[in-house]
């Protein structure tokens, strides 16, 4: 208990300290990784801890991003209420699609979530007049000042990403220690048994979808605000596959896995895009190799072989 708290607080402190030492290029990258890792934390809550494999999380990420960006663009909302609107958009979309998709299981669940996300992506294209479709739109620097902090500045951008990531990391650690989190794990391990112990498994899974969608939406809203851009590509299938890839690589059902997986994959793609335009090739190869040889991911293997206490 103390070991794992120390480990996670240590990571949070380390990321804070890196702000002062990293060269600008990696400093910017790490800010981006922390926001994307927050998205992965949201995904991991559903996939890693509840055992539900969604292929449509881009829907929630984009709901957050567009909920934020459209209200800034067309309602003139300030960043704080815009972020809140993004979160609410994600929660509502997750609540409705979750209630429908959870009537299915396994492969059907994967395809239903994929189809909902595809419908969401096409909807963004359909309303291209407002969303500017694939081209997207820029959020002006003047609209990105949160409580007097200019989020387009590297320092505040990094700090905002750090605060969001730390809150979600420690929040998810707390969640899986609570009875609710233990029940999610029980559902992942043996849903019928959990039901026959008196747990309302549908309600638990629905709350998990909503929480997971909410965190993903928050990450999407923050991404749009910190990097000043919203575009339809963030709603495409690729952005549903990414969190799956990051979580699988880092270790599904581990607290550190989402961050480790996002960091590794980000730099892997960053390095290979220096060599070829076909940088998604790396993503494909890593996916196949992981499913074949390390289905537990990096942190999962570490937990299995060395540190059994890792949460």
């Amino acid at each position: 208990m103390i070991r794992s708290l120390a480990l996670h607080l240590g990571l949070v402190a380390l990321l804070f300290a890196l702000h002062f030492v990293l060269p600008p290029y990696h400093h910017g990258n790490l800010a981006r990784v922390m926001v994307l890792a927050t998205y992965a934390i949201g995904y991991n809550l559903l996939f890693g801890y509840t055992g539900l494999l969604s292929l449509g999380h881009a829907l929630f990420f984009a709901a957050g991003m567009y909920g934020m960006a459209l209200s800034v663009q067309y309602l003139g909302a300030a960043p704080a209420p815009a972020l809140l609107l993004g979160l609410v958009a994600g929660l509502v979309v997750a609540g409705i699609t979750g209630a429908l998709a959870l009537r299915t299981t396994g492969v059907a669940f994967m395809i239903v979530t994929l189809m909902f996300a595809q419908a969401g992506y096409l909807t963004i294209l359909y309303f291209g007049e407002y969303t500017r479709g694939d081209e997207g739109f820029v959020i002006q620097q003047a609209q990105r000042v949160l409580w007097g902090l200019d989020l387009s500045q590297p320092t505040w951008r990094y700090m905002a990403a750090w605060a969001l990531f730390s809150a979600c990391l420690l929040g998810s650690l707390a969640l899986i220690r609570r009875p609710f989190g233990r029940t999610l794990i029980a559902i992942r391990e043996n849903e019928e048994r959990a039901r026959m112990l008196g747990y309302d498994t549908f309600a638990h899974k629905w709350v998990a979808v909503v929480l997971s969608g909410g965190i993903s939406a928050l990450a999407g809203a923050a991404y749009g605000l910190l990097f000043g851009y919203a575009g339809a590509s963030f709603a495409s299938v690729q952005y549903s596959i990414f969190p799956l890839l990051w979580v699988l690589l880092g270790g599904a059902g581990t607290i550190l896995g989402p961050f480790v997986g996002t960091l590794f994959m980000f730099y892997l793609i960053d390095l290979s895009s220096g060599i070829t335009t076909a940088y998604m090739l790396m993503a494909g190869v890593v996916l196949v190799l992981l499913t074949l040889f390390a289905p537990q991911g990096l942190i999962g293997e570490l937990r299995r072989r060395v540190w059994g206490w890792l949460p």
């Binding site: 494999l53 699988l248 998604m280 090739l281 996916l287 196949v288 074949l292 289905p295």
Partner: peptide, 22 residues
């Protein structure tokens, strides 16, 4: 295994597509 197969064929999708691009 149904779920792992889907993940693997997603990987295969990117490998074939990106190898064609290259």
């Amino acid at each position: 295994d149904p779920e792992r197969t889907i993940v693997a064929t997603i990987g295969l999708l990117y490998i074939l597509q990106q190898a064609t691009l290259m």
